[in-house]
Simulated assay, not measured.
Amino acid sequence: MSSGHKAMTLFVTVILGLLLVILNLCADWPRWAWAASAALLAVIGVVTNRVLTPKREPFPRDLLPEPDLPLPDPARQEQRVTHVALPSSVADYDFSFSATVRWLVLDAPSDAPYINPAGLAIDAILQRARGVTAQQPPHRSAFVQHQLDGALATMRVDATGRVMSMALDVSLSLPEHDRERLAKLSDVRKDEDVWEHERNYERSKRAYLGEDVLKDTGSAVVWWLSRNEKEVEGAVDRIGLLARLSAAAKNETVAPPFEHLVPQPREVLTDDTPDDGPSTGRQQPYDVGEATVSDNGSGEVLSVDSLLEWFGFSAADADVNLFAERLITIASAHGKTEAVDEIRRHFEPDPPEQADAGAPGDSAPPPEGSAPPPDDDLTP
Rank of each mutant, 00 (worst) to 15 (best):
M1D: 09
G4A: 15
H5A: 14
T9N: 00
T13G: 10
L20T: 07
L20E: 10
L23M: 11
W29C: 10
P30M: 01
A33P: 00
A36E: 12
A38H: 05
V43Y: 07
E57M: 01
P58Q: 10
P60G: 04
R61S: 12
D62F: 11
L63D: 06
L64N: 05
L69V: 13
P70H: 07
A75W: 00
A75C: 01
A75M: 01
R76T: 07
V84M: 11
A85P: 11
D92R: 10
T100H: 11
T100F: 09
V101Y: 08
L104R: 11
L104P: 03
A112I: 06
I115F: 03
A118S: 15
G119I: 01
G119Y: 02
G119M: 10
A124G: 14
I125A: 09
A134V: 12
A142K: 13
F143K: 06
H146Q: 12
G150N: 09
L152H: 06
L152T: 08
T160Q: 14
S165C: 03
M166D: 12
L168E: 14
S171F: 04
S173F: 04
P175I: 02
E176V: 10
H177S: 05
E180F: 03
R181E: 10
A183N: 08
S186I: 00
V188M: 09
D191W: 04
E192T: 01
E196K: 06
N200D: 13
R203S: 12
R203M: 11
S204V: 01
K205T: 14
Y208W: 15
E211N: 14
E211D: 15
D212I: 09
D216W: 12
S219I: 04
W223Q: 08
R227T: 11
E231G: 02
V232A: 14
E233L: 14
A235I: 09
L242F: 10
N251H: 01
N251F: 00
E252P: 01
A255C: 03
P256V: 12
E259I: 01
P263Y: 05
R266W: 03
R266M: 05
E267D: 07
D271W: 07
D272G: 08
D272Y: 08
G277T: 12
T280Y: 09
G281F: 08
R282W: 10
D287L: 15
D287C: 08
A291W: 09
T292E: 08
V293H: 02
G299R: 03
L302A: 05
V304G: 04
V304C: 09
L307V: 11
L308G: 04
W310Q: 06
F311P: 00
A318E: 10
I328Q: 11
I330F: 11
A333G: 12
A333R: 13
H334E: 14
E338M: 05
E342L: 03
I343W: 03
F347E: 13
P352E: 08
E353W: 05
Q354M: 12
P360F: 12
D362H: 05
A364R: 06
A364Q: 07
P365K: 05
P366E: 02
P366D: 03
E368Q: 14
G369D: 15
P374H: 11
